[in-house]
Design a protein around this nucleic acid. Structure first.
Lengths: 349, 349
DNA sequence: ACGGCTGGCTAAAGCGCTTGAGTTCGGTGG
DNA sequence: CCACCGAACTCAAGCGCTTTAGCCAGCCGT
């Protein structure tokens, strides 16, 4: 025999018990003028004695907004394996949203067009007040779409080269300076005497991939390095391993490889180990983004670490500012820092 | 100058343009009787010409439910590093929810009591129609709470020993047979001649941790193995490494270690490598749950693999069934299978 | 003593949708 | 020819909350 679930109290119940009108209750509970302090107190007491909570639906319907923000992750199922990045990011985001009692509507989809559909649906159904957009890319259809819908958004991640982020009045951008970060890696490797460097990158369409590739080229030219190149992958360990194998088998194999994420790096390390190439003495490895993988690998991997949860927090804060009617901003996140571990050493001659 | 965002059409707009009443529109769009096929078609056409979407808030308010389910992850920020498990699970869940246009409200919190708060809040605010509960534990306060709230739920994961899952009429349970899975691991190791086995487990309060520990003991007794034990950890690579170090330094170190997740296993592997203990010849390692980590480790790790996305899908399906008024069920997921790789071999004498 | 304020409250409309209770109208059976 | 019926609609209430307009008592100044 199933217990009747407790009935949820409404402001009507509160009004009845405290002997005032529903409007008075609303005023009292929302800290609006129009009720005496005495009444306000009484109403408040009754409210939380009854365990009252405002109905999100009713609030939303009467123009208060949905009290929810959305986040969609467009990744083919195969790719979203390990990546510590997202849970950390989400965890940071939540921290901030929780303070304002905002919910996070989350969705994982296969591709970009499904992502856009999700935005349209959320907008149409008035489910979210704003969204957080990850993985900006070249010719990204999302900012214009969101602009058209009038859905406030924060794009998380550096914009593609050439896009300065203006022109989308309702959209903020929280960016990390991938160019400078790449420069710091190149500087480190160059300082160790490396002249042949390969960058095994992620998805070619992602904005940060392009920034990194571009920066690598610039830095190489600046230093007169001619044997430096980038190769894009799908971020999977499979491709990471395959590309590494190919690169190491070439005539003049690199003395250092920079991987665009931890999974690629670890996969690469495994390949090196399999071919009997000692790391770091025969090959230096740098991972972009730190994680347990990098720390537990053997040797542990020199990695570009950033505080992903903090990144998420800042993104959420920017979105809140936007929802509060603030202007769209471009803000830069802290520069990540290169944590030197056991996988980088002086180039062997 | 900001473009005025498009105004969202309501059924009133549709009613006006198609020359019928709002109710007729509602009937037409929801496939209810009471309108002619001709009218229905016309209304439908107008609706999607206008790009109409039902307002989730209005629907919810008029008794249709929130069209949303909730999932909260109670993990201290430190722990939710790599674990491929959750994103995979969520990805599977979404696949099923998407078919019914249900949203997923997601929350990451620090601990169990915050998780319970989240449920209360969601219930009070009528934000979700049901929830998915992960990481069941001993003396779990969540099922009784959800029962009291009358919030349909599916508990994902095996219940603690002694709890048969009955007694919570609104709650289904999707369980994996951790006991048999552990038995299969022990059988594999025993068959390879291992007699001293250590199980480096996860959080001691989690139900599946207890099941595994209990099963290990049972299996050991059945085979007359006396030098077998479990040690719990917080799932972090740090503790995994530390416990491994301690265990390997003991007088009669184990010849095989079973780790409760991929992170622990990789951390353990690194420790072994650091101490010059060859894997698998000097030590066999088994990881519970597969991931890139296991596959890219060197040697690759023998792992207990399960189809996590499928697990998520089934859980979501159970929840849907519950929301449709079906009875609470206990269903068992497929047995995971032990993928033998390079980290297990015959015990050295 | 009276008009005008102001503080404290109530009444009522409205948000977008569902739904049960009418209403209309073209048949049908008697 | 009329009562009756069901199909196809319309009306209006209601979900829980916010918000605008309005009401009334009491206090001010003159």
């Amino acid at each position: 025999m199933r217990r009747t679930p407790a009935r949820r109290p409404t402001i009507k119940d509160i009004a009845l018990r405290s002997g005032v009108s529903e409007s008075a209750v609303s005023f009292a509970l929302n800290g609006r003028p129009g009720v005496s302090e005495a009444t306000r107190d009484r109403v408040r007491r009754v409210a939380d004695q009854l365990g009252w909570r405002p109905s999100a639906a009713a609030r939303a319907l009467s123009g208060e907004g949905a009290a929810t923000v959305g986040l969609v992750l467009a990744r083919p199922a195969s790719t979203l394996g390990v990546e510590s990045f997202f849970l950390q990011l989400v965890s940071g985001i939540q921290e901030v949203l929780a303070r304002r009692r905002l919910g996070l509507l989350f969705q994982v989809v296969e591709d970009l067009s499904a992502e856009c559909d999700a935005y349209r649906r959320w907008w149409g159904e008035r489910r979210v007040d704003g969204v957080l957009v990850v993985d900006p890319r070249a010719d990204d259809p999302r900012p214009p779409l969101l602009d058209e819908l009038g859905l406030p958004a924060v794009v998380i991640g550096s914009l593609p080269p050439g896009d300065d982020g203006t022109g989308h009045p309702g959209i903020s951008n929280l960016w990390a300076d991938d160019a400078r970060a790449m420069a710091s890696i190149v500087s480190h490797l160059h300082g160790l005497g490396h002249r042949r460097i390969v960058h095994i990158a992620g998805l070619p369409d992602l904005a940060h991939t392009r920034r990194r590739i571009q920066s690598l080229r610039t830095e190489a030219e600046r230093r007169g390095l001619t044997d430096v190149r980038s190769i894009t992958t799908d971020y999977s360990d499979t491709e990471g391993a395959e590309v590494t194998r190919r690169v190491l088998a070439s005539d003049a194999p690199p003395t250092a490889i920079v991987y665009d994420n931890d999974v690629l790096a670890v996969a690469g390390l495994a390949v090196a180990a399999g071919r009997g190439i000692p790391v770091p003495d025969g090959l230096s490895i740098v991972a972009w983004d730190d994680s347990v993988l990098c720390r537990t690998a053997h040797p542990s991997l020199t990695a570009l670490v950033r505080d992903t949860a903090a990144f998420g927090r800042r993104a959420a804060e920017e979105l809140l500012a936007l929802l509060d009617g603030g202007p769209a901003l471009r803000v830069e996140d802290e520069l990540p820092h290169l944590e030197q571990r056991g996988s980088t050493a002086a180039a062997s001659p």
